[in-house]
Design a binder for these strands. Structure first.
Lengths: 347, 347
DNA sequence: CTGAAAGCGCTTACAG
DNA sequence: CTGAAAGCGCTTACAG
């Protein structure tokens, strides 16, 4: 009655094989396959019979068998990073949206958040084991050299992560320019001494680079910079105390964080410690993708998530069509500064 | 030199088959398979030879072939909903984390955000086509009846969505209790007339239910309720104007939104319209999972995302081990109220 | 403990 | 336009 799976009472559609469909339609298995593939002309009459059988049995093609027989799947594997930063969640979503728009069949794998590079490698093998037709990598920690052995078999594009490998197409944020933009704003606001939080590169290459970039650029503008190493991923308090101390000692009038999450955590910490923002200390974040940021008033740098996701999916699609026609490049998209009341002139 | 793929110069590890490994180790293919599976005892000496060959050739097992031959994969399919609401992004992440912790191999598919139920059904077929060993459904829109034909073949647990189907295990938020909690707070604060935004059920069953629940509960406490239908998903302005109007006319002193996203959008709208929160109008949200919410001061209801994700993964794991031992239940976890300055007594 | 062989459910030349 | 048959890369009884 339901319109699905009514052909074989009690049997799940998942148990129906192509042979069952063929028998029902009174044609050969090859013909059913051809109707499904749509690559070879099939007579109208036959096709109708097959479609009827398909519907009656509620047939769900076994993609596993299709993949084995067909040699290669049209699935695109997407290797994502963990959930620590909302910016990745958004990128993830955007990539999915763009992929669907372009007709790519996406299969996603997210490594465990702990033991980063280990888990990512395992996730990579899982995807490769599925013999995906293409691979999009959007996680910051895995080494490009881990991808190397697979480059001549499967097209790889890394999205939203800093890619420097000459054999891997990269579409990402222009972290250097972005860092420079933030640094310029801070310097222009009149700050002459600033604390810059630099995330360890093993935790996030993007954040690491942002930190380095902001520090270097500030110094280029003659600002006195204190670099603070952030060891744990996500929110944490260790270097928050250092920032507070620098502020109290008058050795920093601004604190630059490599992500909004870290900056938000600090704002709470500052409240508790009695440090006023921006009167005592200006604060900037990075990412600017979370809803409600405007209400918090955090000055930040908005990364072009949608643009990067879109371009990444486009490149993947092109490579799938004709690998050779796509020379490897490293594209970088700059973001835009988002003003906020947490950044003001030093008093 | 690299330690990977050095065995066959120029050949990708993805081109290496089990037969290649067997030849190199001078054993049969069956033996290599046994070493890999680890289910049958293999002599220490043989195992060593196989492992050496495995490493030298950089062999990556073809999971497609494994799946076909083995009959069933140990992959668990996760069907997610689109990105419109950050609460789902977090749930998604948490499920992944818990799944990894329990040793489940997760494969995720996200339907296109447009044409909801259609896209979700396609995504479902993609997962089923992969013949996953289990299915976790975390998207609000797909009909349980669409899942029905597959229930006796593959265990299904729906996570974070309202599940009422007697054949599908459900682990979700206790939306009714949560709605009651929010309504109680609003009523207790002294409000006697409130606007409740109710999302269309075709957009989000969860939000729909929250809205209905809040409205009913308020009325139960004698509050005069104005129900406003929200038609588009995510942020939108149509019913915002209605809320503003109700406030100005003195017909509502509080507005209850079924998600923080909607509430945040309204706060901006209220600012622009000159409606003061909470002086003119109290506002509440729902979800309370985004970072920085405390700084915004939005009163909301925190849903127990981690707990639901954990429990969902646990149930899946149990069902995978022994389907029969797990009687279908519908578990619901209540959340907790998060106070904020947007909720105050009516003036 | 190990090997030869059948079979998983498809696709795709190869013949008609 | 259609069918019979080989083969995709594995796992797993079935015999030793």
């Amino acid at each position: 009655m339901a319109g699905v799976g009514e052909g074989i009472p009690g049997a799940s559609p998942l148990g129906v094989r192509m042979d069952d469909v063929a028998a029902r339609a009174q044609v050969s298995r090859a013909t059913v396959s051809r109707v499904l593939m749509g690559t070879v002309p099939v007579s109208e009459k036959t096709r109708a019979k097959v479609h009827a059988a398909l519907r009656e049995l509620g047939y769900v093609p076994n993609m596993i068998a299709q993949g084995l027989a067909g040699g290669r799947s049209d699935l695109v594997g997407l290797l994502l990073r963990g959930p620590s930063n909302p910016a990745y969640g958004l990128l993830h979503s955007e990539i999915q949206i763009q992929a669907v728009r372009l007709g790519l069949q996406l299969i996603t794998v997210v490594p465990a958040p702990m033991e980063p590079s280990e888990a990512e490698f395992a996730a990579l093998r899982r995807l490769l084991g599925l013999r995906v037709g293409g691979l999009m990598v959007s996680t910051g920690v895995i080494r490009s050299t881990d991808l190397e052995p697979f480059l001549d078999t499967v097209p790889v594009v890394s999205v939203g992560r800093i890619e420097e490998h000459p054999g891997i197409y990269g579409v990402s944020y222009d972290e250097d320019t972005n860092a420079a933009i933030v640094a310029d704003r801070v310097a222009t606001a009149g700050h002459r001494a600033a604390a810059v939080v630099i995330t360890g590169s093993e935790l996030s290459t993007a954040e690491h680079r942002r930190g380095l970039g902001m520090a270097a650029h500030l110094e280029g503008r003659g600002v006195d910079v204190h670099r603070l190493e952030a060891s744990t991923f996500g929110t944490h308090t260790d270097c928050y105390d250092d920032v507070v101390a620098l502020s109290r000692e008058g050795r920093a009038t601004a604190a630059l964080f490599p992500s909004d999450i870290r900056a938000l955590g600090f704002l709470d910490h500052a409240d508790a410690a009695g440090v006023r923002v921006p009167e005592d200390l200006s604060v900037t974040g990075f990412d600017a993708i979370m809803p409600g940021l405007n209400r918090i008033g955090l000055a930040s740098l908005r990364i072009p998530v949608a643009r990067v996701a879109e371009r990444g999916a486009e490149v993947m699609k092109e490579m799938l069509r004709d690998r050779e026609s796509v020379p490897v490049r490293h594209e970088r998209f700059p973001g835009e500064f988002v003003p906020g009341r947490t950044l003001a002139a030093p008093r």
